[in-house]
Structure formats: structure tokens, C-alpha cells
Design a protein around this nucleic acid. Sequence first.
DNA 1: AATTATTTGTGCGTATGTATC
DNA 2: AGATACATACGCACAAATAAT
Lengths: 356, 356
Amino acid sequence: MEPKYIILKKQIIESILKGDFKIDEMLTSENQLAERYKISRHTVRQTMAELVNEGYIYKKQGKGTFIADSSNRKDTSLKVGIMGTYEDYIFPSIINGVEKVLAPEGYNILLFNTGGKVDKEAMLLQNILNLNLDGLIVEPTKSALPNPNILFYKEILKKKIPLIFINGCYPDLKTYCVHVDDFLAGYMATKHLIDLGHKNIAAIFKVDDIQGHERYKGYLKALRESGLAINENAVIWYSREEEDTILDQEKDVCNLSRIANSSAIIAYNDKISLELVNLLKRNNIQVPEDISIVSFDDSTLAVITEVKLTSITHPKEGLGVRTANLLLKIKSEQKIPLDDVTVPELIVRSSSKNII
Amino acid sequence: MEPKYIILKKQIIESILKGDFKIDEMLTSENQLAERYKISRHTVRQTMAELVNEGYIYKKQGKGTFIADSSNRKDTSLKVGIMGTYEDYIFPSIINGVEKVLAPEGYNILLFNTGGKVDKEAMLLQNILNLNLDGLIVEPTKSALPNPNILFYKEILKKKIPLIFINGCYPDLKTYCVHVDDFLAGYMATKHLIDLGHKNIAAIFKVDDIQGHERYKGYLKALRESGLAINENAVIWYSREEEDTILDQEKDVCNLSRIANSSAIIAYNDKISLELVNLLKRNNIQVPEDISIVSFDDSTLAVITEVKLTSITHPKEGLGVRTANLLLKIKSEQKIPLDDVTVPELIVRSSSKNII
DNA sequence: AATTATTTGTGCGTATGTATC
DNA sequence: AGATACATACGCACAAATAAT
């Protein structure tokens, strides 16, 4: 049996939402309500106190009780945060996917941009802890390095806020992760080139990202499997800070010498692949005639230029959709495995060809 | 004389803020407090009810009253919404600019994606009205067409929520607008080609966007000023729905016939320009040897391909920064002009050359 | 300008129900 | 099972603000 004050409260709320009252319209007085519903004034007041609290009504001593503007109602909106390095590459597509699923469910999306800086990340996490979000999605930067903000994340988990990482997760955090099988991706890319007859395959990977490590491991496996030698000098590692400058013209001589004996290159993503194409073109090396390239992510950049890139797929928007669906599942309290892995595909285009 | 329950409430809050209690520590029971302060239990309960309400304490029937985690205290965070068609072109950069300015000021960014659909926009605006945002930034879609949701925007203005449009604003809304001088941009692009000796200049513009109309007006002015004829057949208009298909291969014959007599083309943005380059390349027409192109927005796409695009600048991230600063100004001052115009620049690259 | 009726605010007392340990 | 905590509910009295007479 529901308490009387709750019954009355529900009736009044329903009536308000149905539009029975205008804003600032006066409600029946406490005494009259008590009489009408055969309850004490005290009980009516209990109802009214909660309605004031939730912003439905306001009172004026000596005058009466009135309908409040709906904007004063308590914020009961659902909020999901998305935190990451907000780059104009595939992250916006991921957000799109998340939004597509969560918006119809009534969620609002809050955007947090770390700019790849851990101190900014700390500031944002501090803020997030006070926001009482209904979920947090994180695309970590430098996921291959120990993260100084790990305690904040643990705090979030302690508060039972669903925490989902995408693309990669810090090893000492036990939480959900939605990602591509990057190890397989690296293997597939390399295998493709080996199948085309390439024997000297250079590579360029991001060093501070777990995805870079995984793709490298896949690369190693493919080479080993085919009995090909691993040439450490032909593997170029770059960090987030260098990503805009690692293939700059001034470094052409250095970079070219490292890949001189290679007939093919595995490149960490489409962005770096295009820069690679430019580097090679500057030095009169044709893709794919002189050198083949296999890229990752299969982004819009892969097909925008004259040389269409052979690339390993990344679900992009689909990853966002998967993440959002996972979040909804977690909310409905089902038991769900922490790992959500997508198997990538190889899209063969014109940047890779068989060796002559 | 202050009410007893208020006096008690103030004492307890002071004690909590002083740090006398640990989180989840149990408070003295209602009966004991009533006895100690020589007041009735009812009065103590009145105090407690308000403290629960303000997030200082929580209660458990049968157990007791406990100190709440400070993060449960009322949400006083600042919130700014950004609504637009969340496309992977320049919109993410604009958001970046907004974020860069507002995050250090303690604002949270909420993202709303209309997907270019007015019914989704209506749903989001309805939601936004209930969120009590501290500001709303809108990049309108189809800004050249009458908007059926104009009443929602007027509702937002009525609530004194700062409303800033970017890139363009609906004519019957009197609110702030941060944008580029698109009329001048269209004029500069055309003038550049005229100065290079071009006399037959085709154009492709977006029909449902106010920016398209403005750029077209600038184009007309430049032609008229130089006494050049306006060839309506050589101006291609496309709508948002067609933007991915208007330059598809099947339509090459039709499109080529319309620009057959032209030696140069003004293209609405870098995206469409690259598709234009591809169209021309498919038909063995060289840029800029056979035909010059001047583009708009000067995005990353402008320099990503072999043909580097001559393009009119758009501030992108800078526009976001301007918008955010405007928002802060509105919050602090009163009288600020509604219009915030940026003068564009012409960046000459290799897609335009003088006529032979 | 004072009176009166009405409405909400403060405060006390009491009784009973329900959850927890 | 019993003690203790909070929850629900009724009744009463008076104070303070408001509006109409």
C-alpha cells in the first residue's frame, strides 16, 4: 500500500503534466485538499514539500501555492560523458555512433576533450566525479603508458558509474572495453603484403598507443610465420607529440634510408599513410609501382586522394553504436563480458600490388 | 528570530563543512537531537528533510542518518549546448575552439546532433528547454529555408538563455550570430579568377544554406563589376540531400555539359571541390591546366591531395573561440552587437592559374 | 486605517508502521 | 524477540503574510 502523501503527489504531478494548470495558477489550499481527500493537513503539506522540492510548485506565505515554470523542475536528464583527444579523424564518427543510439533513449552527450594532456584529463575527471553521470566513455590517449589518473577512474568505478573504454584500455583497470582486434589487424595487413610477394616490409607505428603495440605484434607474427627476418631499423616508432612532424621534409633523408631496402610499408593509420605517400612522391617514388602501402582505419582519407589506400577497417561509427548499446545493456543489469572485440577486414585498393 | 529548524540546520551544515564528520558516519538520532536541543522530534525531522534535500545527508529507515558524499550536493555546474549537423568536416574544429575557451571557465559541453533533420531538431530543442542550459550555440542546417522550429528558439530567448548562431542565422530570429563574411568570400573567390583572366566562370553552390546564397551573391557582384555575362546554366545548385551524389560518375555527362565553356569553377567548399577534381580527372581534364578551381573553407582537405586547393579561409577553431568568448561577454556585460563578422582571406595554391 | 478571513509557516504531542541489528 | 532507528499519519495551536472589506 502506497503512503497517502505519495498517492496525492502522483495525482498532482499527473494533473500538472496533463496540462490542467497554467503557470502561476493557484492550487487548492492545503486545508481544502485535506478536507477533500479526508487526510490531515500535515499529510498534504508533506506532499507539497516534495513537489516544491522537485520544482513543480512554489508557495507564498499568506497567498497560496502556485504552479511553477517547468524549467524549475529538477534535472532528471540522463547524461553520458565522452572523453578523448578530440581529433578531426575518426573520433567524431565514433561520437556520431554513440549519439545515434543514446539520443533516442533520452540521454544527453557531454563532451570532454583532454587534448592528450594528462593534467587536463585530471581536471576533467575531477569535474566528472561531481557531475554524477550515467555513464562515461573514454578513448584513452597514450594507452600504452602508465596513466597518472588511474585513481580517478577507480573512483568512478567505485561510484558504480558505467565506464567503457574504446580502442584500448589501461591494463590495471578492470572495466569494459570496446575495440578492434588490432593484433589481428596488424597480422592481416602484413600477411596481405607477404602474399603479394613482399619480403622486406617496413613499418611505422605509434609508440604510446596500445593499438600501435598490438598492430606491431601482429606484424611480427606474420613475419615470423613466413620465416622472414625482422629488421628493427625498418620499424619507425613515433609518439603523439611527433605525429605532425615525423614525416616532414627535413627528415626525408633519414626516413628514406630506413626504408631503403623495403618494397612495402605498413603504416599506423590513414593519416600517416597519406603523409607517407607525400614523402615518397617528393622523392619520386611511386605508390604502388615502387613501393606498396597498407594502412589502417579505412577512413574517408583512404579514398580521397589519387592513390586509394589499401586499409584495414575500423568500425568507426559502428564502434560508437556498439559502445552505446553496451552501455544500455550494463544499465539493464545483465552480466556482460568486459571485452567487446570487432574483427577487422582488409579492403584492397590501389596502394598495394604484387611484387614484380 | 530565526525558526528553530533553521538554527539547527545551520549548525549541522557548519559542522559538516568544518569536517567534524566522515563520509557515511552516522548522525545522532532524531529523538536524541530533539531531547538535546529541547525541541520536538517533528522539528528535527524538518531540519533533516532539508538537509537530505540539499544533499548533505541521507537516511536509511531502521539504521539511521548518515553524512553524504559531498559530490551529491546540488549540481551547480555550468552547461553549454552545441547543436548542429555533426559532420566530419569543420564542425569538430569549431567545437574544439568552443571547448578550449569554455572548459577552463568550468563549463561543460553538451553535444546535440540534428543530423540535418528538423524533427530531430524539434525533439532536441524540447529537451534543451528542460535542461536549463547556460547557453546554446547552433550551427543551423538549411539556414536558407524557413525553419519550422523557430518557436522553440524564441522560447529559448524568452528564457534569457544566450543563443548564438554560427555560420548563419534564420532571418526572423533576433539573436547573436558569429560568421564569416560569405558575401565577401564569394566576391574574393570570383575576383581572383577574373584577375587571372578567366571570363567564363562556372559555380557550384549549396541551395539550402544561407552561406551558399551569400557566396553566390558575391560571385554575381564580381561578375557584374567586371562586365561579365552571367550564365545561369553554369551555376549548379545542390541540396543537403544531394551532396554525396551530385558529382557521381553517372551524372558526369550532365555536369560536364553545364561547365563545358568555362575555364574556371567556384566550388562551395573543399569537400565538393575534391569531388570536382575527381570528376574532372575521370574525364581527363587537368586542374589547373585545363580548368581552375577556387574553393571555400581552407580545411585540411585543401592540402591533402596532389592538387592543393586555392581556397577562401574559414576560421574554424577560431570561430569556436570567438563564439565562446562572445558567450562569456554576454554573461558579464549587457550591450553587445548581435553580429560578429570575420573577414576571410584568399589562400592561393595550385588549383588556380592564369588563363593562357 | 483597522478588521477579518484565508493561506502558508512553525512547532508540539501522540500513535502506529516498518526496517535493522 | 526486543530495542532502536526512521516513516507515516492525525490533531492542535499559534505566527506571519496577504487580500478584501
